[in-house]
Simulated assay, not measured.
Amino acid sequence: MSRVAVKKRILRVKDAARVSRVDSLAAEEPLEIRLDGTPLTVTMRTPGDDFDLAAGFLVSEGAVGSPDDIATIRYCAGATVDGGNTYNVLDVRLAPGVEAPAPRNFYTTSSCGVCGKASLEAVRTVARWSAGDDPVELAQSVVVTLPDRLRAAQRVFDRTGGLHAAGLFTADGEPLCVREDVGRHNAVDKLLGWALREGRLPLRGTVLMVSGRASFELVQKAVMGGIPALTAVSAPSSLAVELAAEEGLTLIGFLRGTSMNVYTGERRLTSPERPSDVTPGAGYGSAGVRSTG
Rank of each mutant, 00 (worst) to 15 (best):
M209Q: 15
L218M: 12
A77L: 12
P202V: 09
M1C: 09
D49P: 00
P30A: 05
T231D: 01
H185M: 03
R290F: 14
D23I: 13
A229Y: 05
D69H: 11
R93M: 13
S291C: 09
L191M: 11
M1T: 11
D50H: 07
V142K: 04
A95R: 09
V59P: 00
E198G: 00
P280H: 10
V123P: 01
A27C: 04
R3A: 15
P39C: 12
S271F: 14
R12E: 15
V136Y: 07
K14L: 03
T72M: 03
R200H: 14
N85A: 13
Y87A: 13
A100S: 11
S291H: 14
D277F: 08
E247K: 13
T264R: 04
G84D: 11
D36F: 03
T109C: 08
S271T: 12
E247F: 04
L269Y: 02
T41N: 07
V178F: 10
F106M: 12
S237R: 07
S110Q: 10
T279P: 02
A152L: 10
V6L: 09
G132N: 02
N85K: 09
G199D: 07
R45G: 03
P103G: 09
V219A: 09
H164A: 15
L58S: 03
G37N: 07
T86V: 06
F51K: 04
L251S: 03
L25Y: 10
S2H: 08
D277L: 10
R268T: 06
S259F: 06
A187E: 03
T125H: 05
E32I: 14
V207F: 02
R104D: 08
L208E: 10
V210G: 08
P101W: 07
M224Q: 15
S111M: 11
G248K: 01
D181L: 00
V64L: 08
S60N: 09
A5K: 07
L218S: 07
Q220T: 06
A16P: 00
T170K: 03
P30F: 02
L35Q: 13
P101N: 11
S111V: 10
P228D: 00
T72F: 02
R159I: 09
F169I: 12
L120Q: 13
T109Q: 04
L31G: 01
E247C: 10
G199F: 13
L203H: 00
N186Y: 07
G283F: 09
W194P: 05
K7Y: 08
P47K: 07
E28S: 14
W194H: 15
W194Q: 11
F254H: 12
L53I: 07
R74Q: 04
D133W: 00
I227M: 05
N85F: 01
L201F: 05
E266W: 08
S234L: 12
F51Y: 13
D277W: 09
G116A: 12
M224N: 04
Y263I: 06
V241N: 01
R9A: 13
S130Q: 11
V123K: 11
L196S: 05
N186P: 05
